[in-house]
Design a protein around this nucleic acid. Structure first.
Lengths: 224, 224
DNA sequence: TTTTATTTGTAACATATGTTACAAAAATGT
DNA sequence: ACATTTTTGTAACATATGTTACAAATAAAA
């Protein structure tokens, strides 16, 4: 079956050979699940009964407050495990909603089956430790970014990162202001306003989605 | 040695008998480390070379921005592992500073030794998985608290929690406004101001550190 | 008790960010 | 090429929080 190969791309199975993975999966039971766009794959507060491997599609993880404020944590695409760290520990409830951005397909293993899988293979166990450790790093970074940076600082970090990745001082914003604002946990007009403040100060040039960094040095000074 | 018993209280060794733990520890090497008050046990950005078990004392974990803003993540006392989740994963750097609040003693195992320990005993491994999973829950909760709540909301959550823990509608704040403000990631006068705003609204009474909740219902409505 | 240090309360003011609303521009679908 | 939808830019205003400074109250030390 073709999805064995897809699974092999998942960090959990890194270092495994396809035949080995196939043999392991033949021993355990699993389900394939389909989610139409905007359906909830998991719900904040719900007890995690197992683990989802993303096969196709795209999902987002977000938290919301009682009053309706929403904080997007991340978009997840590609060969990832969704919310990997809530199988173990004292509290097995999801701290976030997980919602399909578009039509999405997952492989689901129950908690019990997943525990068995971890016990069957050293490499998988080790990979799992890596994965959940990476999650704590990710969350720590998110915490720093969201609570210690001003909007200006967030923009500076983001733009400098775009520039570094592309190797160019000019590039196009890969996403809309609205999505960027979600990621920054701020209001969209506030983001646009701050972005143009940087233009006024002549640190960057803006032409729609096209950005050119003029004063890299000064821009990086805006990082808190 | 007396510290075997102290270690046994650590969640990592939960479910182990003292003789078993003693035997395991006799097979591995470790160091005892002393830290005077206000010394750095670990430093943001530094690569984690092993793992610290807190034996005595108290430490705090905090992040700081380039511009000097400090966000306290938590105070750690009792039988805890410090920064347990940075041994595995792609990035083994500490995302926080870990600083001794007062004179503190730790047991230190190198990464290598710690990995061996995990391999020697199923229970320990399982406990470790629980511990780092709890860390992701903790960080998720922190993220929600810090980014989704207003100061009012933070105070409401905190006071209602104090009340629930003590079982009384009146109690004394166990810490100063200054420390509370650190925990909330806000400025001290802003915290005091918001606290007194609740008094003006007659939701609580304040007499120095003594607090009495008058309108529990309305107070809980301030939670975002 | 007296002295000293810490904590609390408060005011005036600065700044950052959110809210709402709308027009202009750009992208997309037909 | 036209119509429709999405995105961007912007203004006016509201609100939340930070900053600084200082006096009053309280707690700790001598």
């Amino acid at each position: 079956m073709i999805f064995y190969e897809k699974l092999l791309g998942n960090a959990l199975f890194h270092g495994l050979e396809l035949p080995v993975l196939r043999r392991l999966l033949e021993e355990v039971s699993y389900q394939r699940k389909h989610y139409p766009a905007e359906t909830f794959i998991a719900c904040e507060g719900e007890v995690s009964s197992g683990i989802h491997f993303l096969l196709n599609g795209s999902v987002r993880a977000e938290m919301s407050s009682l009053s309706g404020k929403v904080l997007k944590i991340e978009d997840i695409e590609g060969k990832r495990i969704l919310a990997p760290a809530f199988i173990f520990g004292k509290n097995n409830r999801y701290p976030v909603d997980i919602i399909a951005n578009r039509e999405t397909e997952c492989l689901f293993l129950t908690r019990h089956v997943f525990l068995r899988l971890l016990g069957m293979n050293e490499t998988i166990l080790r990979n799992y430790l890596d994965i959940i450790s990476d999650r704590t790093q990710f969350l720590s970074d998110k915490l720093r970014f969201l609570t210690l940076q001003t909007i200006r600082g967030k923009i500076a970090l983001y733009l400098l990162n775009c520039s570094r990745e592309s190797g160019e001082s000019q590039f196009r914003l890969p996403i809309s202001h609205a999505r960027l604002a979600e990621l920054f946990g701020v209001a969209r007009p506030s983001l646009t306003r701050s972005l143009h403040e940087l233009k006024e100060r002549k640190l960057i040039e803006i032409d729609g989605k096209a950005i050119r960094i003029i004063k890299k040095r000064e821009l990086s000074m805006l990082i808190e």
